[in-house]
Design a protein around this nucleic acid. Structure first.
Lengths: 355, 355
DNA sequence: TTTTAGCACTCTATTCATACGAGTGCTAAA
DNA sequence: TTTAGCACTCGTATGAATAGAGTGCTAAAA
């Protein structure tokens, strides 16, 4: 907008720029509150600017031409476009603090700290509740976590229980059926071998390097290596997808933009399929800080009219997962951003437990 | 209906009873197909009965008075009531076989057999898909599964990794922070103690008997007992809820009864809260065979207009969990019942793996 | 030059009247 | 016992009329 302005500002003053922003801000925030198109009269009443509706109309017409606002029809007020919201979140939105109560609610989610996934499920729920939107949490991807410990426990016959402990607090396990029975001593040797070779590598690294590393060895360990490889392959624990936890879909039914079914159906499909959402959230897990997707910005099909706000969280000093909120583009950005930021740093803090 | 009939049948013949059933059946099945109220003319065309609309109207009026049918309004055809559907599923509905394709889709869900929960997630999805409704699966409740093996693995300092293997194929685990560090030898003794004492009991039994059993012992094992108790308590693995997997909510948006929001909102809430649903499904896990809840029959609030069909599945010769389908009362019962039955026995078969 | 008042215009939402059609219930005849 | 006939009810579709909100433009005011 700044750029645009400077091009066109021939004769306009800084005051004029401020006014434009003021009007855009007012239209957007009023629309966020009421969900109704905002007319020029309403803007004059909301802003401190002592200007008549006619003047405001001129400004709004200009903002519309530049693509920040639209009309649903001729005789209606203005509503923000995706571009308008984008400018709003980039330049206009101010931060907000959560209320005491909301912070308490968040703490509650971390109260009973049993399994990681359950706690994160409660986090998704509380995110949905305090924003009145859909809360979403991407669990730490097991592929990215570092192996801390591997244990092989003999079961009946050829069965072996493989237990992996990772730094993400997750304990993965699988029962593997070996081709030949392995004695207790042999398993211990294999386990020892794996523990020395693989500790502190990420599971996906292990998966990638598996063939090279373990086949090259032509030492006396050859047999042990072979068995170790068999076990790791069969346990297939490296292939984990990164689980997605959702909660609060019912909340967004309250919003008037989803009262029409053709609007709501694609969103529900997106939420239930999870695939597209996973793509975005996994990518966001890679980079720190807040990400905002307005409409189809992130390449999310059928996401027109919706916004996704995410933030990644950390496990100690490593990447963890992502959490976020999904709602209509007409989102209370201030509150949602505050919530997402707060919860992200709270999870990171909580995750230090497992470091 | 039989009873009702015998009371009122003064002068009516068996033929008359057959006709009544025929009419009711036609109205219900036509309504299930079209979602439109069924008029007397439509019934005459569908049934083989050579009767005029007027005659049918008389029968329908009677069925309405008895509570099997209603009118949305005076000049509309008939639609079934909850009582009507109940009679239909109890007495009229006939069974159906799944198509080749549907059976293949189901097999697909069991193809990759990694973790139990993932496979069951795919089962929920396929149930939703082939019925075009919401598929739901209650995982085997860990509390009900038998303990097959318990392992204690020392971690850093006072931490101990507790691994439980149950007969439901589930491996539960938790990291426990002991009050005092325990040596490898000590843990081995404790593990051996637990393995001899607790094997083949259900986790909830263990939980209930824990205090009695382990405190009574005043033997030389006392210290071991105390530590064992500490570990079991802190791992809190007995308290598991029994996870509920849902899929296909998007499917039921297609049905006309949920086009109106006030109809859909309570259903979505019910699905997302999961609590009420868990109550029913857990209860159904106790008894074999098909269960059908039409409307609020099962004590499900806000379930008016919906039907839940469930069946339990087994793990070997023990109770496992429950699976089911949720949709509008106007449900293709024949197909859904076939699907639920088929999938239930297929899961049971699959579960034999873990016995 | 900038702002504003005034006004014609556009479009939506609402209301009312009307007509139509589907389907019923009842009655009397077959 | 069944059916034809008919009056009646009620929901839906259609169209006209109206009110109201808000705009864009123009010309006057600041």
């Amino acid at each position: 907008m700044k750029e645009l302005l400077e091009e066109e500002m021939h004769s306009h003053s800084d005051d004029y720029e401020i006014r434009r922003r003021q009007v855009l801000l007012t239209v957007i925030e009023t629309f966020i509150e009421t969900a109704l198109p905002v007319g020029s009269r309403a803007v004059t009443q909301m802003t401190g600017l002592r200007l008549s509706p006619a003047t405001i109309r001129n400004v709004m017409a200009e903002l519309e031409q530049e693509g920040y606002l639209t009309h649903p029809h001729t005789s209606a007020g203005r509503i923000p476009t995706a571009k308008g919201y984008r400018f709003y979140v980039d330049e206009l939105v101010t931060s907000e603090r959560l209320t005491e109560l909301q912070e308490q609610q968040i703490e509650e989610a971390f109260r009973q700290s049993e399994m990681v996934e359950k706690a994160l499920g409660r986090v998704a729920r509380v995110l949905g509740e305090i924003t009145r939107q859909v809360g979403v949490v991407l669990c730490p991807q097991t592929g990215r976590s570092l192996l801390k410990r591997i244990e092989l426990i003999p079961m009946r016959g050829k069965e072996v229980l493989v237990v992996l402990v990772t730094d993400a607090g997750a304990v993965e396990n699988a029962i593997v059926l070996l081709e030949e029975e392995a004695g207790k001593g042999e398993l211990a040797r294999i386990a020892h071998f794996l523990n020395t070779e693989l500790i502190d590598q990420s599971l996906s690294e292990i998966h990638e390097n598996l063939y090279r590393r373990l086949l090259d060895e032509r030492s006396s360990f050859f047999y042990v290596c072979k068995r170790a490889r068999e076990i790791l392959e069969k346990s297939a624990l490296m292939a984990d997808e990164g689980e997605l936890l959702l909660d609060g879909t019912r909340n967004i039914l309250e919003h008037p933009e989803f009262q029409r079914f053709d609007q709501f159906k694609p969103v529900l499909s997106l939420l239930e399929e999870k695939k597209e959402l996973l793509r975005i959230l996994k990518r966001d897990a890679e980079s720190e800080g807040l990400h905002i997707y307005i409409g189809e910005e992130g390449g999310l099909e059928n996401f027109r009219g919706c916004t996704l706000i995410t933030s990644s969280y950390r496990i100690g000093n490593r990447r963890g997962g992502t959490l976020g909120v999904i709602g209509p583009t007409r989102l209370p950005y201030r509150r949602v951003i505050a919530a997402v930021n707060h919860v992200a740093s709270r999870i990171s803090k909580w995750m230090e437990m497992f470091e």
